[in-house]
């Protein structure tokens, strides 16, 4: 492991200046980054610790209802806000699948996103709930990007050197919508998803599915949208048969690999079951009795 300079800026401006240095890497919780550095899976020469920048510990609502979640805010702190926990129970539950309490005391939503693991548990619902990130480039320009555009492959992102993700912006849930993320792991806790399915379902006034978003974990190089399954659902009335068909469509369109944690065939089976169950859970939350 190469020499490492640890830096602790207290303002965004100082962090941006540090991020412009060669080999700089932002440190939020560090639960992925630190073992990756020590095992030689990532390299860095300057570590920019974001946790002492007050703005990056923000956790509040904007006037339009959007939640502003600083890039350094831990999953543990995310759970401490009762109003957020009520409004985004499913997203919070998915974030609480990340590692143990020790990990959640450090790990952040922004870190889960920027680490770009295909199995990242919080990311499918972040995308499905249309979260946006704020990014400040090395020359100080602020931009916004949809969460879906960040991961490009295992461990790879669309961020360029010097980019600093400062904030996750999460809009309030739409009326008559529900969210659910389910994953399968051999162990109940402390495990990595063999497959996961995150669903957001929205009904119109007549009880017809107005919108459906399905994002799958661990079955493609990055969190993957199940487009065919989504289009199958939109415009239909929820039913057990429809959800089974959507699960089968998601299984058919996902692109899993076989590895030590599961075969591609097994992952497809899991996607079918998890997607069907996540859809049924959304329907249950919305008070729909499935025919």
């Amino acid at each position: 492991m190469q020499e490492l300079a640890y830096e602790r800026p207290t303002t965004i401006a100082k962090a941006v200046a540090l991020m412009a240095r060669d080999g700089a890497r932002a440190l939020a919780g560090g639960s992925d980054l630190i073992p990756q550095l020590r095992e030689g899976r990532r390299s860095a020469s300057v570590i920019v610790d974001l946790k002492h920048i007050p703005a990056l510990n923000d956790f509040r609502r904007e006037p339009d209802g959007t939640w502003r979640i600083g890039a350094a805010l831990s999953v543990a702190k995310l759970g401490a806000h009762a109003e957020f926990a009520r409004e985004h129970a499913a997203l919070l539950a998915s974030a609480r699948m990340i590692g143990s309490l020790q990990i959640q005391a450090r790990a952040t939503l922004a870190g889960n996103l920027c680490n770009a693991a295909p199995s990242a548990d919080a990311v499918p619902l972040l995308i499905a709930l249309e979260a946006i990130v704020e990014i400040i480039s090395a020359d100080g320009v602020l931009s916004r990007a949809g969460v879906e555009s960040i991961a490009t492959g295992p461990g790879q992102t669309s961020l360029v050197p010097g980019d600093l993700v400062t904030t996750v912006l999460l809009p309030p849930p739409e009326p008559r919508s529900a969210a659910c993320y389910l994953r399968f792991t051999p162990r109940r806790e402390m495990d990595i998803a063999i497959a996961g399915s995150g669903v957001v379902l929205r009904l119109d006034d007549k009880g017809v599915i107005a919108n459906a978003k399905i994002f799958l974990a661990s079955v493609a190089p990055k969190p993957m949208r199940a487009s065919t399954a989504q289009s199958l659902l939109i415009g239909q009335k929820p039913s057990a048969a429809l959800f089974t068909a959507a699960g089968a469509a998601a299984a058919a369109e996902c692109r899993p690999i076989s590895d030590t944690r599961g075969s591609a065939d097994y992952r497809r089976e899991l996607v079918a079951v998890l997607t069907r169950r996540a859809l049924a859970d959304c329907a249950r939350q919305l008070g729909v009795m499935l025919p």
């Binding site: 490492l4 640890y6 602790r8 440190l27 919780g29 560090g30 639960s31 630190i34 073992p35 570590i47 610790d49 946790k51 020790q102 990990i103 450090r106």
Partner: peptide, 8 residues
């Protein structure tokens, strides 16, 4: 403690 840098 293995996931925290000494500097942190």
């Amino acid at each position: 403690a293995c996931l925290v840098l000494a500097g942190e």
